[in-house]
Design a protein around this nucleic acid. Structure first.
Lengths: 221, 221
DNA sequence: AGATTGAATATTGGATACAATTTTGCTTAG
DNA sequence: CTAAGCAAAATTGTATCCAATATTCAATCT
């Protein structure tokens, strides 16, 4: 009998571990905008030298999550409301295209998984988890497209505005409206109505953008 | 009298210099697909240690230009025709959107500069320069949009398929057709016909994609 | 001959040490 | 008391060295 082929997923490099940890912390806003990233400090947190820390920070910079100046170090990137708005527009161009391509390829398993995330989003009480469930719902549908490059671009865009998305969800009726729209998108996918799914997706994104922008300007952005 | 504000562009770090050099070499195909990047070898070329080389390679990896495995090193990313096709589609979604937004904002200077690139593209005899002139023509028009995030995404996509674009231009009538289409796009922008400019841009991209794909399949891709 | 093992070599990942530059904080002249 | 200037500390960028892993290749066995 053949031996169990144990998938020894070779332990990731220290640099990768630090990169993922910092990325998560920045995306979720645990490290605030404009906060400096001190190499020594981070190295001590992970019990490593500064070398892997530097590599992690470089990778973050290529993703636009931090901005660094020679001999001055890296700070978490800030995002003006204008820049955030442009990223919403970027998504509003790409995501309808992707879901249109995805609808024909969604399997029953895809739709079941998306429905599960949709319902989890609806029933989840903890606002901290809304952001993840929201992204997982959309990603499940988009993944069916098989458009890896598009998906990566969308993911990068979402990472840049993740904290704004979370903020938007907890606004007055942000969560309720998002949930309504999710259910409509899910329904359109289930009846294989690609045009409608694309239209709803575009409105979903542009609506979130407008809701966020009016809020930001009302509080003195 | 105020001192001449000499823009002391502080000398870039070694890592940045190496990054830019490798990026250019990979994009232009000087380093071929799947070729390994040996840290020691590159370090000697630039008379540095391996540290800045590693940082440069990491940045390349974040841009998808190389793929590296732990303890095995980095190789130049390969691109299947399917992946290349997806990137053309990605551009075909974004670029029409960007030029539509740009048309209203193009100044006479913008249009003059674009026209100059367009004509230079037409008159240039050296095929090695066609790729750059092509990109500069389009970039000049797109820049007027002010959509920095979109422009960056388009630039990244172009970098991934740059060598395929060059190959497509030197195909039978690739150059002639590209030139025709450029002149039409330029004309549409000058009469501020955003819809037409967007339509032409989409066709320009999808036409190049199809031309390339039929060529690749004909030579046994 | 072909496959297998194991040492030697090559290559990458990370730690430590040093150089270049910025930032801080004290001192002092006005 | 404030501003300028300089020394000290802090911080980043790079070089050198060691550790971990992969690759090569000769020796051996079937």
């Amino acid at each position: 009998m053949p031996l169990e082929s144990v998938d020894i997923s070779q332990t990731a490099s220290a640099a990768s571990i630090i990169f993922e940890a910092l990325k998560k912390a920045i995306i979720e806003g645990e490290i605030k905008e404009a906060a400096p990233l001190r190499q020594d400090e981070i190295a001590k947190m992970f019990n490593t030298s500064r070398i892997p820390v530097r590599e992690a920070i470089l990778r973050l910079e290529e993703h636009g999550l931090v901005k660094s100046q020679r001999y001055k170090g890296a700070v978490v990137s800030t995002l003006s409301s204008k820049e955030a708005s442009e990223i919403f527009d970027f998504r509003a161009v790409l995501e309808p295209h992707v879901i249109r391509a995805a609808v024909q390829k969604m399997t029953p398993a895809t739709l079941a998984k998306a429905r599960a995330y949709c319902e989890a989003f609806y029933t989840e009480a903890d606002p901290m988890k809304w952001g993840d469930l929201n992204r997982q719902f959309h990603a499940t549908l988009y993944n069916a497209s098989g458009l890896a490059y598009h998906l990566e671009a969308i993911d990068g865009a979402l990472n840049r505005i993740d904290r704004y998305l979370r903020a938007q969800l907890v606004l007055s009726d942000g969560m309720a409206r998002a949930n309504d729209e999710h259910m409509q998108i899910q329904a359109a996918c289930e009846r294989r109505d690609a045009d409608r799914a694309a239209e709803l997706t575009e409105r979903h994104i542009l609506g979130a953008r407008d809701s966020l922008l009016t809020h930001l300007s009302s509080i003195g952005g």
